[in-house]
Write a protein that binds this DNA or RNA. Structure first.
Length: 587
RNA sequence: GCGCUCGUAGCUCAGCUGGAUAGAGCGCCGGACUUCGAAUCCGUAGGUCGAAGGUUCGAAUCCUUCCGGGCGCACCA
């Protein structure tokens, strides 16, 4: 919306600049492209064209040039509505806000929940892998950043028109799983989630911790775990049975956590099924000469061409490695669902792995290797430093959600809103989720972030609940409007009545939304939406605080301000759905 | 040691990919509810943008060096 207005002006100014260059200076060559910016202060206008770049070529000081262009353009009969102003070396435009508001109201009214979406990626098939938990312990804070990002980026890509397939790869084999199993065999006394009332993933996690304690005392523990892995790989019925039992518990627990956190997948892959894949592919590469075999029989790739060292791809006994398996899994996925791109949401510590993986797939001749993308996100640390499982500082996901939920519940109670809220429990959970997702997504994904437990449970300031609160207030006002202002509702929307400074800013911000969705999609960056939403909410909040809506001076003004508030609400709803913040009509 | 990455207010983060006086939240201090929801709003204080050079009309942003954090550099996943 806003970009269309900007483009119109840009084209015009560029044309006039070229005209000036030709008629005054006799310059026919194309000039440098015109930069378009947003003035630092709204008083300076809505669009800015810096003219520094033309000073030399046109032999004119930028402020003078700005003045000349202004005069020149103002002579045109069919220029877009809006005003030009010269601010030093900038030629600025104050757009015609009433006409923008009118078309905005049409578009938002027509598109509703689709307002802001675009077709940039239409017909593109995008697969996105995220979460990928181990089955030996419950989810923690690190997973939550991963899950929030995965869900959000998936939603954002859909809003950009893509067909999205969310996939999860369950890490359900390996020596770490055997450790939990072994500890359970030794100390478990046949207890179960049912018998103890402990959620399955937590129960299994407890045994993983017990193993660590035991291994400190008994130096043979690690060895025994390795032995169990061998039995598992050999298909020993007793080991397999225990593995199935305990994996079932964990997966049950994880499913509950996912449900509570609003996370879902279109397909699950299990490492126990994929870990043998990739071997044939590596051997094919060996035949084609892109890999080589060492004397001991292991297969390697030389990564000198991408300035890395050598990397082993198959052990001397012919068994797979992490890399081998990921090669196989990628190929299998492309067969399952031929994608135009595949995004791996994985922590930044694995950058090296993905660099190698993509390169190896390229060497194997898969031309889609260039369509693979590692969405690398930073670590989540605590104010005291890194989370360490040994020191018990790992933040458990279920616990965190529960804490936030009960805090939200307490807040509802304290404000005596229990009767006014549909479902206190559900609302509390939605507030908790909104707080958490917003907290985790507001930081640029690639950066490390610090999770401050105290701050994360705050519902004031730049938080998810703050945004939800704006939605609830507007909803509340609209309910009243629909019930008591039937006569006003018959009036038409008169955008010329929205003349306040904050109203201008709100209209512009609403019009900006589609661009933010596009950018967030292009950069896989939900934090852009967070920043945008906070700006919008803050603007709205100030405007709403300072200006009566339902009690505005005239019915026509009531009608116009209601229109503005409704548009804000629509954008809030639409954007919330892209960052995992549940919309609440009351809270 | 090599590679990647980050360093902006006391703390947590923005800063539109090189432009105008570097912005928010939290915290501190001080204001605003007989009026549409105070989970709100308004104001004060707080900065040599890690340091030094360089490129440029113009640098938090690009280049070089240095300092300081984080993460990698497994026949673990």
């Amino acid at each position: 919306m806003l970009s269309a207005v900007r483009e119109k002006w840009k084209t015009l100014v560029e044309e006039q600049l070229a005209l000036y260059a030709k008629s005054v200076m006799g310059i026919e060559e194309p000039l440098a492209p015109l930069a378009v910016q947003i003035p630092p202060k709204p008083e300076l206008g809505d669009i800015a064209f810096p003219l520094f770049a033309y000073a030399k070529v046109l032999r004119s000081a930028p402020p003078l040039l700005a003045q000349q262009l202004k005069t020149q353009i103002e002579k045109l009969d069919d220029r877009p509505s809006g005003d030009l102003l010269v601010a030093g070396p900038y030629l600025n435009v104050r757009i015609d806000i009433a006409s923008l508001a009118t078309s905005l109201s049409e578009v938002v009214g027509r598109e509703r929940e689709r307002y802001g979406t675009n077709a940039t990626l239409s017909d593109k098939r995008v697969m996105i892998e995220f979460s990928c938990p181990n089955t030996n312990k419950p989810l923690h804070l690190g997973h939550m950043r991963n899950d929030s990002l995965g869900e959000s980026v998936a939603a954002i890509l859909k809003a950009n028109g893509a067909m999205v397939r969310k996939v999860n790869l369950i890490n359900n084999r390996g020596v770490h799983i055997c450790k939990s199993m072994l500890a359970y065999q030794k100390f478990g006394n046949h207890e179960t989630p049912d018998s103890t009332g402990i959620k399955g993933d937590h129960l299994v996690g407890n045994y993983y911790v017990k193993f660590a304690a035991w291994a400190k005392e008994d130096p043979t523990a690690e060895e025994q775990a390795q032995e169990m892995l061998r039995k598992w790989e050999a298909g020993d019925p007793e080991t397999i049975a225990l593995w199935e039992l305990m994996n079932g518990w964990t997966l049950d627990g994880l499913a509950q956590s996912y449900a509570k956190m609003g996370i879902s997948f279109d397909a699950y892959y299990y490492e126990s099924q994929t870990y043998r894949y990739g071997k044939d592919e590596i051997l094919k590469g060996l035949e084609n000469g892109v890999f080589y075999r060492q004397e001991d029989g292991s297969v390697w790739v030389d990564l000198e061409s991408i300035k890395l060292d050598k990397k082993v791809l198959l052990r001397k006994d012919g068994t797979s490695l992490y890399m081998t398996q990921d090669v196989g899994t990628a190929i299998m996925r492309h067969k399952d669902w031929p994608f135009d791109s595949l995004i791996y949401v994985v922590a930044s510590e694995q950058q090296y792995h993905f660099k190698v993986l993509f390169h190896v797939l390229g060497l194997l001749g898969y031309e889609w290797a260039k369509d693979l993308h590692h969405l690398s996100y930073g670590m989540v640390n605590l104010p005291e430093g890194k989370m360490k499982s040994r020191e018990g500082t790992v933040v458990d996901a279920d616990e965190l959600v529960d804490t936030l939920t009960s805090l939200a519940r307490a807040e509802i109670k304290e404000k005596e809103r229990e009767e006014l809220v549909d479902d206190v429990e559900k609302t509390s959970q939605s507030i908790a989720l909104g707080a958490l997702n917003y907290y985790l997504l507001q930081v640029t994904p690639t950066k490390d972030m610090i999770f401050n437990p105290k701050e994360s449970i705050s519902f004031n300031g730049n938080t998810g609940p703050y945004l939800q609160y704006m939605g609830a207030r507007i909803s509340s006002m609209l309910r009243k409007y629909e019930a008591e202002y039937a006569e006003v509702a018959k009036l038409g929307f008169d955008s010329s009545l929205l003349t306040l400074f904050d109203e201008r800013e709100l209209i512009k911000q609403i019009a900006l939304y589609p661009e933010v969705v596009a950018k967030a999609g292009a950069e896989y960056d939900p934090s852009l939406l967070c920043t945008y939403l906070y700006d919008l909410s803050k603007l709205f909040s100030r405007w709403y605080h300072d200006n009566p809506v339902l009690k505005a001076a005239t019915p026509a003004l009531v009608r116009s301000r209601i229109e503005l508030a409704s548009m804000v609400l629509q954008v809030l709803k639409n954007a919330f759905s892209l960052i995992g913040v549940p919309f609440l009509a009351s809270m």
